[in-house]
Amino acid sequence: MSAKPRPPSSRRNPVSPRHWVSEELFDFWAGRLHPLWTLRRARARLVAREPASADAVTLVLRPNRHFRGLQPGQHITLGVDVDGRRLSRSYSPTPLADGTLAITVKAIEGGKVSQQLAQRAVVGDTFELGQAFGEMTLAPRAGQRLLLLAAGSGITPMRALLRQLDAAGMPAQVDLVYWARRREELCFAEELAALSARHPNLRVQLALTRDPSAPSPRVDAFAFDALGDLTNAQVLVCGPGGFVDAARARLHGQVAALQSEAFTPPVLPDAETGTVQVELRRSGRTLALPRGTSLLQALEAEGLRPASGCRMGICNTCVCGKASGVTRHTLTGEYADEPATQVKLCVNSASTDLILEL
């Protein structure tokens, strides 16, 4: 009796390089021939750069075939080599018609990755590219009422969403309010003005909080009543943690739904002080880490480099096991004391002594 043949999906292909060479070795030598050739990993090459504002630059990246694409409003994690170390940061790209991705990077004082990308990255540089993540996306439909609120770099996902709506004929009534300190810090101002001129149902307001002639109110004092009835509005908010918190408080109970993403964690008003003992079970180390500081930041301050990505609790790259102890969520202030659970290092701090699977 003949053996039953294996299904095609289970047959090994002896010609495939993954069966006779390690992925790391293949990527090393293939990369010598072409910087985007890898066995499985998504990578991207910088093909163009242009200024976006006084302190920001837009980089156009061409991903390799292993990148699975993204929806407007989602994020990707970019791996950048800085001083011999690979660091990861999250950005919200605008997908372009030719398959490239445009990311806009604001140079932050002391920010190693932002300084590298905004000031020193040159055409031809290559980067590790994570697959897309995030749920602040839209399915454009007629009759929608949308309110988009952005501050600083938070305009980048809004730009991608507006381009998606533009391609769909702007079926929704959309208001965008975009906060910046000064006019020269605005990104995409001309593009936003052109979109608004093309679509009567898109209104764009630029709120300049440090305009010397007429400073605009911040989000907590903004006159949302002037935008009309927001009872049925879907609101999307992106910006620093304090901005997102203020927007949520300001619009609580006044809109149908509110989604938000903060690219800096808010500061808890009653943050705990002192230190606790954190045992890293796999490495056999015990560290005294500060309470009230995210575990990711505290571990990095000790010279460790845990895997990380978005640094805002979305992508799950920094998740690790917690064997025991109490953590505090830096975004909500909630405590978690369950043993043998998973914890996101970027948005949790140690409240008591901990044992982590690191």
Results as ranks from 00 to 15, higher is better:
129 L>N: 11
249 A>K: 09
144 Q>H: 06
119 Q>V: 15
30 A>Y: 03
207 A>F: 00
268 L>I: 04
252 H>K: 13
244 V>D: 01
99 G>N: 04
82 V>P: 12
268 L>A: 11
32 R>Y: 11
105 V>C: 01
140 P>H: 10
297 Q>N: 11
105 V>G: 01
97 A>Y: 04
86 R>G: 13
79 G>C: 04
135 E>M: 09
167 A>Q: 12
122 V>F: 00
356 L>T: 11
103 I>K: 06
160 A>Q: 07
332 T>G: 09
273 T>P: 00
184 E>R: 14
59 L>W: 02
213 S>R: 15
269 P>K: 02
90 S>L: 01
259 Q>I: 05
34 H>R: 10
328 R>E: 13
245 D>M: 02
68 R>K: 12
143 G>E: 11
319 V>P: 03
78 L>H: 02
281 R>A: 15
341 T>F: 10
47 V>S: 08
355 I>L: 09
265 P>A: 09
15 V>F: 05
73 G>S: 03
263 F>P: 00
109 E>C: 02
193 A>L: 12
202 L>M: 05
215 P>A: 13
192 L>I: 13
310 C>L: 06
300 E>T: 01
252 H>F: 08
246 A>C: 01
63 P>K: 09
139 A>R: 14
279 E>W: 10
358 L>T: 15
335 Y>G: 02
233 A>N: 07
66 H>S: 03
114 S>W: 04
353 D>S: 08
135 E>R: 14
156 T>H: 00
161 L>T: 00
120 R>K: 12
70 L>N: 04
99 G>W: 06
20 W>R: 12
304 L>S: 10
142 A>K: 13
197 A>H: 12
96 L>M: 11
142 A>E: 14
336 A>H: 12
179 W>E: 00
97 A>P: 07
52 A>E: 09
138 L>Q: 06
261 E>V: 00
113 V>L: 05
228 G>S: 10
116 Q>T: 11
278 V>H: 02
319 V>D: 06
318 C>Q: 11
94 T>Y: 01
6 R>F: 07
319 V>K: 15
296 L>C: 06
71 Q>F: 07
293 T>N: 09
130 G>N: 06
7 P>F: 04
151 A>P: 01
237 V>K: 03
167 A>M: 09
156 T>R: 04
256 A>S: 14
183 R>V: 02
84 G>D: 14
167 A>D: 15
173 Q>D: 10
77 T>A: 09
151 A>G: 11
47 V>C: 06
48 A>F: 04
243 F>L: 06
53 S>C: 05
288 A>P: 03
